[in-house]
């Protein structure tokens, strides 16, 4: 095949080509740097909401959520969509279950309500498939609209496109509650107390949580040694998923009297290669259970059987919710359970 010849060499395309490559690579490098160094996110407490006068309707409060977004929400909304188990836990503990008209579920083909809530949680919180609002693989705006909530409480798993549609089309405010630290859990409890007008209950729960954290912290000095720990909530052929610096998971391990082998990892949720785990040789291995995960699942991880913790019966399962859901139960039940494992 022949091409039409040109008199002059095509210099412009060559420059375009080079410049485009440089731009793309620079963009990627900058993106990588941002991802590697930026903190997950930090909570920026907003101004205290003005108290709603009794009987004044409609009444709104201004809050700042965990992404630092200023959101105006209706005071004490009767119908709320709760799109994350950690928020549902706090809602239940504050006596707000009756406000919840919808919860997050994956598509029925992926387990429906059981994909995100354990059977214990479903029974305790009186949840049902009828309350399902599909959040994955695609968010169902239609199911949310049909639930007619006046407020959506969600985690960062909700796609940005869905958040925008909820706000712009359905005109429902969205508050993102996903604390990155243990102290953030207390902050979010306080935030819910303000939104729903249950400040006394929220304060009582916050005090209880703070006491638990303080007790765990003061107990650290009494332990004869601080063992090294790998806490993993999932594994695959590439390694072990765990927590990095600045996360609630790493804080949980520290307060539990352990020293995380990934505490200094700049990636908040790194996947540690088997080689790294084997060379760190953690004294304890804590793995998340439930939702189909058990010890046999973790045995498939490369190098699992070579870990001295596994060989010496120091690989112990702990409910995944206690490890991955930053909520009051993590502090009130997960932390004591972790302490009991690490310091029997």
């Amino acid at each position: 095949m022949s091409l039409t010849p040109k008199a002059a060499a095509p210099k412009v395309p060559v420059r375009t080509f080079s410049a485009a490559w440089v731009a793309v690579i620079a963009l990627v490098c900058a993106g990588g740097a941002a991802g590697a160094t930026a903190a997950y996110f930090t909570y920026a407490p907003g101004a205290a909401p003005a108290a709603c006068a009794p009987g004044s309707t409609p009444c709104f409060v201004n809050v700042t959520d965990d992404l630092g977004r200023a959101v105006t929400v209706p005071f004490d909304p009767a119908r709320v969509a709760v799109l994350s188990p950690n928020i549902m836990d706090a809602m239940f503990r504050l006596g707000l279950r009756s406000h919840v008209v919808g919860v997050d579920c994956y598509a029925p083909a992926f387990g429906g309500i059981s994909s995100d809530y354990s059977s214990d949680q479903i029974a305790l919180w009186n949840l049902s498939s009828a309350m399902c609002i599909q959040v994955g693989p695609t968010f169902s705006l239609e199911e949310l609209a049909n639930a007619t909530p006046s407020l959506v409480l969600a985690s960062t798993i909700i796609p940005a496109q869905a958040v925008s549609e909820i706000i712009a089309t359905l005109h429902i405010p969205v508050v993102i509650l996903q604390p990155s630290t243990l102290s953030g859990i207390l902050t979010d409890v306080g935030l819910l107390g303000e939104i729903f007008g249950v400040v006394p209950a929220a304060t009582a729960l916050t005090v209880q949580l703070a006491d638990e954290l303080a007790n765990a912290s003061s107990a650290l000095a009494q332990y004869p040694s601080i063992p090294t720990v790998l806490v993993t909530y999932s594994v695959d052929s590439n390694g072990y998923w765990t927590f990095g610096a600045g996360t609630f998971g790493t804080s949980l391990i520290v307060l539990g009297g352990g020293q995380s082998i990934s505490a200094n990892n700049s990636n908040p949720y790194p996947e540690l290669p088997p080689e790294t785990v084997l060379s760190a040789n953690p004294y304890w291995v804590i793995y998340g259970t439930g939702f189909g995960y058990n010890e046999s699942f973790y045995e498939s991880a490369p190098g699992w059987s070579s870990l001295s913790a596994v060989q010496n019966a120091r690989a112990v399962g702990l409910d995944s919710n206690y490890l991955t859901e930053p909520d009051p139960t993590m502090i009130l039940t997960g932390l004591p359970d972790l302490i009991a494992i690490l310091h029997p």
């Binding site: 991802g35 992404l67 630092g68 977004r69 909700i158 940005a160 496109q161 958040v163 925008s164 969205v174």
Partner: peptide, 13 residues
């Protein structure tokens, strides 16, 4: 996603 993850509204745009 990397740069605007913390701002869903801006990210969507």
């Amino acid at each position: 996603f990397l740069y605007f993850f913390d701002n869903p509204e801006l990210l969507n745009g």
